[in-house]
Computed example of a mutant assay.
Amino acid sequence: MASNTCAAGSGGSDLRRQAVWATYDAMKTSEILCIGSVLWDVIGRAPNAMRLGADVPGRITRLPGGVALNIAMTLRRFGLVPALLSAVGVDAEGEELVARCDQMGLITQHIYRSDDLPTDVYMAIEGANGLIAAIADAHSLEAAGDKVLRALSDGRLGSIDAPYSGIIALDGNLTESLLSQIAISPLFAAADLRVAPASPGKAERLLPLLTHPRATLYVNLEEAVILTKEPYPDAASAAAGLIARGAARVLVTDGGNSCAEGMACAGVITATPPQVLVTRVTGAGDTFMAAHIVATRKAVSRQEALNRAITAAADYVSGDIGT
């Protein structure tokens, strides 16, 4: 392999060259793409319950994040090698973020790097009573538009004549216009699409993909209500409602309450998460989605896949899985 021909010199350029080729070799066996937000998560966490306007002591962290990257990091923990398609600036924040992704073994060479767009950032406040507030600044990803998809059309990952046929995880930080294009694009016609809205505020962006025959939607109860404009008492009824509106497969979570998976012509199943002490919230849904993807790749039963996903999410929010 080409990576074995790199000189093992002591210089940084030699080490960097080896890392690039190692990533290239890994790319050729990757079967999962993560398309969407790759950014910095700035999270303030307090150990006590908080109310609007609270000013309390706590901890502030900055970590690699974004829906697509959170999913990719979880997939990597399960031993898979995802490729990222996103937009990241060439500013200092972007250089550091891409370097961190490289260190984790993620494939980054298909990320669109822009000279005039800053690296995106997500900011959240969490208390013992859950997420208090959050702002997602994903304007650079939105501005990049379909530039983030170039590798799917120019032959690097696929083309019109030979579209990508593996699993693609999409997140709702992409614009509704771009998601609408994806819903009808021949570049995605052979893919197994796994779709998440990113937040309730962006749930309606998924409407073009709701009835896509190859799409699986991962939403929480609030997002299911937004998508269907119907109230639901629980995840099971929400899953049934989404299937009735033409979805092929959906997974609906509801915090610590029972979650559900629904499939057209196969009904709805449910599972109840284990009770754990919640130490963090941001990224839990992405962990659930990634764990379910891994389980379905192993061809386990629907119930087992759902059980594995809720267990992974519970481990994450309890702090048993590191960031």
Results as ranks from 00 to 15, higher is better:
residue 137 D to A: 06
residue 107 I to C: 02
residue 144 A to L: 02
residue 142 E to H: 10
residue 117 L to N: 02
residue 178 L to I: 06
residue 175 T to N: 02
residue 159 S to F: 12
residue 108 T to Y: 01
residue 107 I to E: 00
residue 119 T to V: 07
residue 214 R to N: 15
residue 187 L to T: 01
residue 146 D to V: 06
residue 169 A to V: 07
residue 126 E to P: 04
residue 135 I to V: 14
residue 162 A to W: 06
residue 182 I to Y: 06
residue 144 A to W: 01
residue 126 E to T: 13
residue 171 D to K: 02
residue 129 N to S: 11
residue 194 R to N: 11
residue 172 G to Y: 04
residue 152 L to S: 01
residue 130 G to H: 03
residue 155 G to N: 05
residue 167 I to V: 13
residue 180 S to Q: 11
residue 191 A to M: 02
residue 200 P to M: 09
residue 188 F to S: 00
residue 215 A to L: 07
residue 210 L to Y: 10
residue 161 D to E: 15
residue 133 A to M: 12
residue 122 Y to Q: 07
residue 215 A to P: 01
residue 173 N to Q: 05
residue 139 H to T: 11
residue 206 L to K: 02
residue 159 S to M: 04
residue 174 L to P: 00
residue 195 V to A: 05
residue 120 D to H: 05
residue 197 P to K: 01
residue 201 G to R: 06
residue 211 T to P: 04
residue 190 A to G: 12
residue 107 I to S: 03
residue 182 I to K: 04
residue 205 R to A: 01
residue 175 T to W: 02
residue 115 D to R: 14
residue 135 I to F: 12
residue 178 L to W: 01
residue 138 A to T: 11
residue 118 P to L: 00
residue 133 A to W: 09
residue 175 T to P: 00
residue 146 D to H: 11
residue 159 S to G: 09
residue 195 V to C: 06
residue 202 K to F: 09
residue 134 A to S: 06
residue 126 E to V: 13
residue 185 S to G: 08
residue 208 P to M: 10
residue 125 I to M: 11
residue 175 T to K: 03
residue 108 T to A: 05
residue 207 L to P: 00
residue 120 D to F: 03
residue 149 L to S: 00
residue 196 A to P: 00
residue 172 G to V: 07
residue 113 R to N: 05
residue 194 R to A: 12
residue 212 H to I: 06
residue 184 I to V: 14
residue 191 A to L: 02
